[in-house]
Write a protein that binds this DNA or RNA. Structure first.
Lengths: 190, 190
DNA sequence: TTTACTATATAACGTGAGTTTGATATTAGT
DNA sequence: ACTAATATCAAACTCACGTTATATAGTAAA
């Protein structure tokens, strides 16, 4: 476990505040106080409030992209297995970074310089997801329900994970992954 | 169709801005400009920025509560039918008020005086939902998957509807309702 | 035409935002 | 111990925020 730089500490504390109140409602003085320092001191470690936001969101966005690329490239998995891998990817990243996930979901629109890059990452991710579902329907592994609605439904659940994880500490990551796969893939009706 | 008061117009325009940038990032001057008036003039129709937020969120919150109360009270429906009614309720309210839904989902924490009231509405709504699912599992209408995970999964999808509706104007409300019921209840795997 | 009322505008107030500056303290390497 | 780099802070800057006070224009009843 590598020790944390001061900048990493600032980002870590900032993202918890962003999760609670949203980027725009958190002030540099709020962050400074939580770090235990005066606002001016933050600027020895970061360039701007914007930079904190970009750090958080872009890092996670690229992690999802890398994960999805691996899943797509894997030639030994069928569509269902790829969906299970996607669920696993979301659970894994969210368990490790719940505050970053909250910030990405809620405050991406406050990115400035990196907004276009983020949107591209996101579009590509959704498109890969869509292609996996499409293939699954074509080869008969998935039911022929409206493609966009499946995509929407699964992604909504996975993107909201950060909201529920803290409340369910009792649920182990592995259990969560399995139960989620059941619910999302097989449904709940007898 | 009753004509719109100036206050209603202000709230309607404000909620579209809130959806785009979030409550904290929207200024009274932004709202004023979109209405076509100076910021100070808004105060002839509203008491404060806070009041706009409360108006939006509490109204929708109470609409959900009323709808859920009806569904719970209906003695002629089983658990599955009640779930279908809940889906219908969400689709109906979201189609009519996408911006209000966005604001409620993202900015409820900026309520001040009415925060406790909102949280009570929400807690009660979730508890009613939970009881319906619990009953469904007990009587064997629903599979015996982790209760909280089902609740989380369905609610996440329904609460995110506002994000997807605008993109899918092609999808009629009735189709959306039916397809969603299929996906959420019966799953997507063959 | 006067009166009362409503809607808007102008100007400004007090506050707190993100950030910069410049001085002082602390730490690390030689 | 000395130096160079790093970290902190107090203070202040500029700007924009929500809001108030007050003046002006438009409208409709008396």
């Amino acid at each position: 476990m590598k020790i944390e730089t001061r900048k990493e500490e600032i980002v870590r504390i900032a993202e918890m505040l962003f999760k609670k109140k949203g980027y725009s409602a958190v002030t540099m003085r709020d962050i400074a106080q939580a770090v235990g320092v005066k606002a001016a001191s933050l600027y020895n470690h970061i360039q701007s409030k914007q930079e904190i936001l970009s750090d958080i969101i872009i890092k996670i966005g690229e992690e999802f992209t890398a994960g999805m690329d691996e899943i797509v490239a894997d030639k030994n998995t069928n569509s269902i297995q790829k969906l299970e891998q996607i669920i696993k990817l979301h659970v894994k990243i969210t368990v490790k970074n719940p505050s970053k996930m909250a910030t990405m979901n809620n405050d991406w629109m406050h990115l400035e310089g990196q907004l276009d890059y983020y949107l591209t990452l996101r579009r590509n991710y959704e498109e890969s997801f869509r292609q996996i579902l499409k293939k699954g329907i074509e080869v008969g592994e998935l039911k022929d329900v409206n493609l966009e609605i499946i995509l929407f439904s699964i992604l909504s659940t996975l993107r909201s994970l950060y909201l529920w994880l803290p409340k369910k500490e009792a649920i182990q990551q592995e259990d969560l992954r399995q139960e989620l796969s059941k619910v999302l893939l097989k449904g709940i009706a007898q």
